[in-house]
Amino acid sequence: MAPMETPLKQIHSIMNDENAVLIYSGEFNQEIVKSMLNYTEGKLESSGIDDLVRKKIFNVMVEQLQNITKHQYTDDDKQIVQPCFVLIEQENFYNLVTGNPIHIDTIQMVTDRINQVNSLNADELKDLYKQARLNSRISDVGGAGLGFIDVARKTENKLDFGFYDIDSANYKYFTLKTQINKIIA
């Protein structure tokens, strides 16, 4: 039987295969978010990437990290999964990937929101954003999904997402991947 690979070897191998350059897994708070943004900003600055692209990455990253910070905990007795952030650098684009627990009651709503966002063009997204902002002023419920619209508008790419089973009757693991092109068309 082949020897079992250690978590370290497996992490390294997945990072190589997926071109991941940064993984953070653990509690998210303002300090952590700030330091990760600083790290990424420094990295992007040194790579000589276009200022506009850099700004886009930064803004989308803020949105996604704030989202994790808000939705990292579960009501279960013990924290069974950790939220996670992965930065991927491909030749022509960056991916920002987040993972966090999600209550099963909200899965359908999130799925519908993202599918709706993915089905719209830039103008339609702009209208939906205006409408969602207006609704969010009226009630918190109306604002749900505003972040998805915002991210889709900024990245100009479709959102990729998935839900995975974890050891909980009430929660699943939600992953969201955004893509930011290095060259603006």
Binding site: T6, P7, L8, Q10, I11, I14, M15, A20, L22, I23, Y24, S25, G26, V81, Q82, P83, C84, V86, V97, T98, G99, G162, Y164, Y173, T175, K177
Partner: peptide, 16 residues
């Protein structure tokens, strides 16, 4: 991402 999160938790890794 899901697998990485599990591996990171399994090995108690915070950052890679």
């Amino acid at each position: 991402t899901f697998i990485l999160q599990k591996l990171m938790a399994e090995g108690n890794f915070l950052l890679a």
